[in-house]
Every structure is written in structure tokens, then in C-alpha cells.
Amino acid sequence: MKQTKGISKWSTGDKITLSLMMLPFLAVFVLFMIVPVLSSLALSFTKYDMINAPQFAGLQNYFRMFIEDKVFLIAIKNTLMFAVVTGPIGFMLSFMLAWMINELGPKIRTVLSFLFYSPALMGNVYFIWQVMFSGDSYGYVNSLLLSMNVISEPIQWFNDPHYAMTLVIVVQLWMSMGVSFLANISGLQNVDAALYEAGAIDGIRNRWQELWYITMPSMSNILLFSAVMQIQSSFSVSAIATTLTGFPSVNYATHTIATHLSDVASTRFEMGYAAALSVFLFALMAVTRVVIGKLIDSTGK
């Protein structure tokens, strides 16, 4: 919606209506999001064990992250690893698959999109992978490999640092067909057909050019949405990793900042330090978000 410049668009009555429409969300948003985020920010400068009142500690929590906390450095490495691999691949998968099924007939499109979205429909189904890759010979993969004589004894998939990271990445990717996939479908179907015709006249030669110069720029809003959702999930890998590889994972192979954070908060009750960790994690994501926003703005140019 492009704003008409210089003209006050809405009448006084309309302005009241608009304010009332904004009010419900604004109220819950400020109360349940903004205030807690600000308190968390404030807590990051304190020492707080949830029993005694928070004590001001300056930047101590932030120093501790990099100087004392050896596990944290491993967590940063793993978080970045997950983010760099699952973020872009998850983003591309959810866009490319939506793009590929977009031109199919309605029936086959409905079936395929259901198949792709089914892991998300099932909720927390990554336990399936636990069954598949179970470390004993009851696991489907071990059982299969044993019967084919590829291996002579079962592999401890999730307890072996060699495999743990890769498996968690695969599971994370498989879970990434979520809301961004659906958003991409609806975005793609709403690209104005006239733009494609105009593009053909202007010298677009093939589908890839069409994708890059027409489709992606005209749905850049949805792409940004889907990118933000991917940033959010790929930097916060935690539940999947701890469910599959246990806590703590062997040699901290899949220990992330989010895992570290929930350990500090819910087991050790060091809320000040946990808050500092979440501020750091937020900063990482926010920087990524800004960079990605710039990249998306530049598609097709």
C-alpha cells in the first residue's frame, strides 16, 4: 500500500477507529513482550538467583561469557554452524519447493504441499528420528546396515560427535517446512500475472531470469518474513538437539547458545547470566536480520 504523500488520509472518526484497532495487540505486546524484554535486558547487568533480589554487577556477566565460560565458546561455534548451514538451506528449500509446486495443477499441488508440511502438522515429531537412528540394533538404520553387512556393530549415532551434528542439522532442515513455506506459497500465487507478460516483452529469457527479476522482487515482503522465521529457528536450535543427542551432548557436540542459556536459567538459576546470554544471542540474530534485509532488497537489481 503506497501512502499518498502530503494528504492527511483519514478523518478524525477514522483515526479513532484505527487507534481502537491497534489497541488490543499493542496492549498485550507491550505487557507480555516489551516489558519482559526490557527486564531481561536490565537483568543482564545483575547477579540474580531468583531467591535474593538482583544485585547490580555491571558488565561482569558479559566478561564472564568470553573469559571464564569455556563451554560458551563451543556453544557459539555450534550455533554459528547450525545457523550458517540450516538457515540458508532451510530458507531456500522452503522457497524452492513452494516455487516448484506453484505451477502444478491444483490437486497435485495440494497433495505435495501436504506432504511437505506434514512434519510441521505433526508437532514435535523429531522423536521419529530417535527411533530410526536408535543406537542399539533395534534402530531401523542400524538394523538395515547390519543386515547388509555394511557395519559389524550398531553405531551410537547420537552419542558419536561425528554424526550428532549432521543428524541434528538434517532434522532441523526437515522441520523447516513450516510457516515460511506456507507464506511462500501464498506469496507466489499472488504475484501479478501481468508482470510476467511484461517481463517476457522486456526480454526475460528463461525461468531463472523470471524467478530472479520478477518473482522474487515482487514478493520481497514475504521473502523477508520467511528469512526472519529461518533466522529465528536456525539460531535457536536447542530442543531438537537435546531430545536427540541428550543433555549435555557428548563432548558438547551439539551444545548451542540456546541450550547453554536454558541450562544456566533452568538448572543453575543464574538469571542474570542467562539474560546476558540471551542479549548476546539476540545481537547475533539482529545483525544477521539487518544483513539479510539488505540482501533481499537487492534481489533482481
Binding site: V37, S40, V228, S236, A265, S278
Partner: peptide
């Protein structure tokens, strides 16, 4: 940006 803030400490 609120989407990006980790829920644990909230």
C-alpha cells in the same frame, strides 16, 4: 525484532 528474542529468559 521481538521475534528474535529467546523466550527462555522472558
Amino acid at each position: 525484532f521481538a521475534l528474535l528474542y529467546n523466550g527462555t529468559t522472558l
